[in-house]
């Protein structure tokens, strides 16, 4: 076992699945010789050949349409969209086509496609590279939306996604690619889709989050432990459909909830979580649900990220307000 970055864990997951199943194909812009702009597919073309790992023309609808047609003819495509902000171009092929095929055909037509795409703020990109668009994807019936919060989960979740016969959008927070390392087992292992995980046990308050904000939440929880606040941290991991059982369990355990997402406040994943808690666990609450999220503007200019992005300070304040309510 080695301590790996998340980007390396992701590369290893694709490497394992390319070797295990000759129906797996990895493709997109710059994924071949260049190994991806983040090097997530580094060395895969050289190892598995140009037939299995290949560059495509530069057109996002074309890339996902290609994935759909390949799935129709028995392949297991793993397309990459270079940045999630470019995914609008492909939305018909994702939401209008891929995610509906199983429903459309009473379950007969399987779409084992895993769309990988980097997203998330704090890395000073030009416009439309950092947007948190998981809420749009989450509103698409038939699509599973997975967001790992670190290297171990990333490898196991990506392997599960590739093996799944359901379409999965696999979102990789850019700030997590190289900012931390975790012990990652050699070889293939799976982390289940549709399951949240308690990343830190606690009794006083539940922080529910995912992706990069999960790591920020953990930092806050560890800091507050020294101040006598014992926070539980739940990682959603699959943000659509939600693991309702795990969410309700932590709410019922602590009676206090802070929801943390990097995305804008309106219409996103955490509103769904809040709705669930309101319907099924409101009597377990002894403080109002607190929400930490970004303001409802488009993703900001890179020099304004620090003012715009939710951060550890916001989370800490929200947790204290909730605990002291």
């Amino acid at each position: 076992m080695a301590k790996l970055t998340m980007v390396k864990a992701i590369t290893d997951a694709m490497d394992e699945e390319l070797a295990r199943d000759d129906k797996v194909l990895v493709f997109g812009e710059d994924v071949g010789k260049n190994g991806g702009v983040f090097r997530a597919t580094d060395g895969l073309q050289e190892k598995h050949g140009e037939d299995r790992v290949f560059d495509t023309p530069l057109a996002e609808s074309g890339i996902i349409g290609l994935a759909n047609g390949l799935a129709f003819t028995g392949w297991r495509p793993v397309p990459e969209i270079q940045f999630m902000g470019f995914i609008f171009e492909a939305f018909d092929q994702i939401a209008g086509q891929m995610s509906r095929e199983s429903f459309r055909t009473a379950g007969k037509l399987k779409m084992p496609v895993t769309i990988r795409t980097p997203f998330g703020g704090g890395v000073h990109t030009p416009e439309l590279h950092s947007d948190n668009l998981e809420g749009l994807a989450a509103q698409t019936p038939g699509l599973k939306v997975v967001i790992p919060s670190g290297p171990y989960d990333a490898k196991g979740l990506l392997i599960s996604a590739i093996r799944s016969d359901d379409p999965v959008m696999f979102l990789e927070h850019m700030k997590l690619y190289r900012s931390m390392r975790e012990e990652v087992p050699d070889g293939a292992y799976t982390v289940p889709l549709d399951k949240a995980e308690v990343k830190r046990e606690g009794t006083d308050v539940s922080i529910i989050s995912y992706g990069y904000m999960l790591q920020e939440s953990l930092k806050v929880a560890n800091k507050l432990a020294a101040e006598g606040i014992n926070a539980e941290v739940l990682d959603l991991r699959t943000v659509a459909p939600l693991d309702e059982e795990a969410i309700l369990a932590t709410v019922k355990k602590t009676g206090k909830v802070v929801l943390v997402q990097e995305a804008q406040r309106s219409g996103g994943v955490m509103n769904q979580v809040a709705s669930l808690i309101s319907q099924d666990a409101i009597l377990s609450l002894d403080a109002p649900i607190k929400f930490v999220g970004a303001p409802d503007t488009p993703y900001p200019f890179s020099d304004a990220e620090d003012q715009w992005l939710p951060n550890a300070e916001d989370i800490e304040k929200a947790v204290k307000d909730t605990v002291n309510f």
């Binding site: 074309g62 349409g65 290609l66 759909n68 047609g69 390949l70 392949w75 018909d92 209008g96």
Partner: peptide, 20 residues
Amino acid sequence: IIIGAQYVQTAGAALGLKKS
């Protein structure tokens, strides 16, 4: 139903046939 959506999928289906 979506006009033209089948054209990109056809490229994929064709590539799938070729790879098989």
